[in-house]
Simulated assay, not measured.
Amino acid sequence: MRACPAGNGTADTTEADLIEAIGWAPLIDPDGRRHDDPCFVQSFDYIYRASRSYHIAVQLVGNAGHAFELIIADDADPVLVAICREQAG
Rank of each mutant, 00 (worst) to 15 (best):
C4T: 14
H55G: 12
Q87N: 12
G9R: 05
P5D: 01
E20N: 11
A76E: 11
Q42C: 12
A16L: 06
G62V: 07
S51G: 13
E69A: 10
I56S: 02
E15A: 08
D45A: 02
A3F: 01
G65N: 09
A57M: 09
S43L: 06
P5I: 04
V79F: 01
E20D: 05
D74F: 03
L80P: 07
S51T: 15
D17V: 01
T14E: 04
T10W: 04
A21Q: 13
H66E: 14
Y54S: 11
E15Y: 01
L27I: 00
G65V: 09
I72V: 14
E15N: 00
A76M: 12
Y54A: 12
Q87W: 11
C4I: 01
I22V: 11
C4E: 03
P78H: 09
I83G: 00
D37N: 05
R49P: 14
Q42R: 07
A73W: 09
T13G: 07
F44E: 03
I19E: 01
R49C: 15
I19L: 02
A11D: 13
I22W: 07
P78D: 08
R34N: 10
D77G: 12
Y54Q: 02
D29Y: 05
V41Y: 08
M1D: 06
I19A: 04
R2A: 14
Y46G: 05
T14G: 10
Q42S: 10
D36P: 05
D17S: 09
F44R: 00
A82T: 03
P38S: 12
D77Q: 09
G9D: 01
S51P: 04
D31L: 01
L18Q: 09
H66K: 10
L60N: 08
Y54F: 15
D31N: 02
D37T: 02
S43A: 08
N63L: 15
